[in-house]
Design a binder for these strands. Structure first.
Lengths: 307, 307
DNA sequence: TAAAAATACTCCATAGGTATTTTAT
DNA sequence: ATAAAATACCTATGGAGTATTTTTA
């Protein structure tokens, strides 16, 4: 017995005509005829009395049809439940965001999102990438916003945007006089960096080594936030690399790189189990709407990896 | 999606182990693994979290499993309902029996059967074969007892026994002095016959022509019952052919044929739709128990056809 | 005789098998 | 190291197609 056969007999009972029933099931008349017959053979019961046209169910057939309808309803219920689970936005969600994004990105979209979707609520935690990943896996978090790729089979990433990496330089550096900086011309010496653990530190180190450079630091100042680093630079102390959302691009200290521009890929991250597709879609849309247009995918970029 | 896949995920949820689940489903582990995966792919939902052993259902998986169990229950319900319908004896049944059997056969088993199966009741009608067939088809009868074969696609015959045909002869006939009569030696002239419509008349005519004989009747006496014919013979008026149940075999008027003996095949007849197999089985057993042992199938017979 | 259903046959998708590799404890 | 699960590959069943015949009204 299979689900198709049940659908065939139900359709046949509804139409009392093989051709019409077959059309409804998107198969040919012989296919439907054969399958109905096969089911009858398997159950060893005549479901339809074909001795006169239009055919009609036998007494046993009536019984079978009633039960077949109930079974099909349950089966459709499975698909429907999944669909509605995927389509529903409502719920309480635990969101982890990396510290180099949280203060700059969340204010841009979260309030509006909550107003637009009153059924949703979020508990936001600032966490470093590895903690977000671990907590998504252990079901302590539902969603993450972080820099991808992670290359973790259990975690699904939905890329949202590509955030340019800018140079934030003090006035006394040579870069200050340039309009745009070439990535190749960058020496990584005396670069101010975030402390260990922040993915952005890893990203910059990665960028550095991918350029075949070795950074030597006279001052090994490591801060926990861009705000401190910016303060250092503002007070004429070296330079740093900084993602665009973390700075006012109109500041005279900010320098863009020439093409190909380094960017970091910012993604939504969820456990493979997460199925609220609609929520992901809506969140992605809301975030995309809140960020500058040039963050959208662009071929002329160097996507830097954080790990 | 198919029923097997639902059974696989339910088994997997029960055992939390692919090997054991596969054993329960009588398939190999790779088969079960693949099918579960295929279902997940089709539904686009992870049903099981395999990141740690033993695996466990995802939240969405729990939902799916609940519904899958309900669906399987309905599906099993179909088979169970059929089985119980087939196995149940209880009910009111309308039984048609041909007149040449009814008065001799019914008293032999019906009372005992009713006592043994208090849940059953019968409405018996004496009808000729063609009427039984018509009423089985039009659902005015549930069961028939008649002489087969009928060769009607809508009617199912369950042979019960083979009733010998005997010669019932008056004392002045040449047959009276013989111990056993050879079928070939029989002249069909002046044979007393039942009136038109009775299948037994057709059977005898059939037997006659199959022997290459042509019957010529001096006295064309046609009766509606064997009792009348027997009365004629008892009063020294010719002879007749008569099925064994209709006579006292110890009577001196009764002569057996030599082998191969002519017999008629007595069958239960039902419409193809009829599914109470157990009832048929029990009826057949009861009838068989009530008739002489030599009525059971025997190779040394000439099965005569009534049509 | 026209419409409906059954039959004959052909094809290919896939459920299921075996052998092996990969993963998790 | 060992048990469990996934993967690769192969086979054969049977679901579905087209063409045709048979049946019903």
């Amino acid at each position: 017995m299979n689900i198709q056969q049940l659908e065939y007999i139900v359709a046949l009972d509804e139409h009392r005509n093989h051709v019409k029933a077959a059309q409804q099931c998107h198969v040919t008349q012989p296919t439907l005829s054969m399958m109905v017959k096969k089911l009858e053979d398997e159950l060893d019961v005549k479901i339809f009395d074909r001795s006169s046209l239009p055919l009609k169910p036998t007494p046993a057939g009536e019984l079978i049809l009633t039960k077949a309808r109930a079974a099909l309803k349950e089966i459709r219920g499975i698909k429907d439940a999944i669909k509605s689970e995927k389509d529903t936005i409502e719920g309480e969600f635990r969101l982890g965001v990396i510290p180099t994004l949280a203060p700059y990105l969340l204010p841009r979209f979260l309030h509006e999102f909550l107003q637009k979707h009153p059924g949703t609520s979020f508990t936001v935690t600032e966490l470093q990438t590895q903690d977000i990943v671990a907590q998504l896996k252990s079901n302590k978090l539902d969603l993450g916003i972080l820099v991808s790729p992670l290359e973790d089979k259990e975690i699904r990433e939905i890329p949202i945007f590509y955030e340019p990496i800018l140079l934030y330089t003090s006035e006394h550096m040579k870069y200050f006089k340039q309009d745009r900086i070439s990535l190749k011309s960058l020496t990584y010496d005396n670069l101010l960096l975030l402390e260990e653990g922040h993915c952005f530190r890893g990203q910059v180190e990665n960028l550095c080594s991918s350029m075949g450079k070795k950074s030597v630091h006279q001052l090994n100042y490591q801060s926990g936030s861009f705000e401190t680093l910016k303060g250092m630079v503002d007070n004429n102390y070296g330079y740093t690399l900084i993602p665009e959302l973390a700075v006012n691009v109109k500041s005279k200290h900010v320098k863009h790189f020439t093409s190909p521009e380094p960017v970091r890929e910012v993604s939504l991250a969820v456990h493979n189990n997460f199925i609220k597709e609609k929520l992901l879609e809506k969140l992605r849309e809301a975030i995309l709407k809140s960020i500058p247009n040039h963050f959208k995918k662009n071929e002329k970029v160097v996507r830097i990896r954080w790990n």
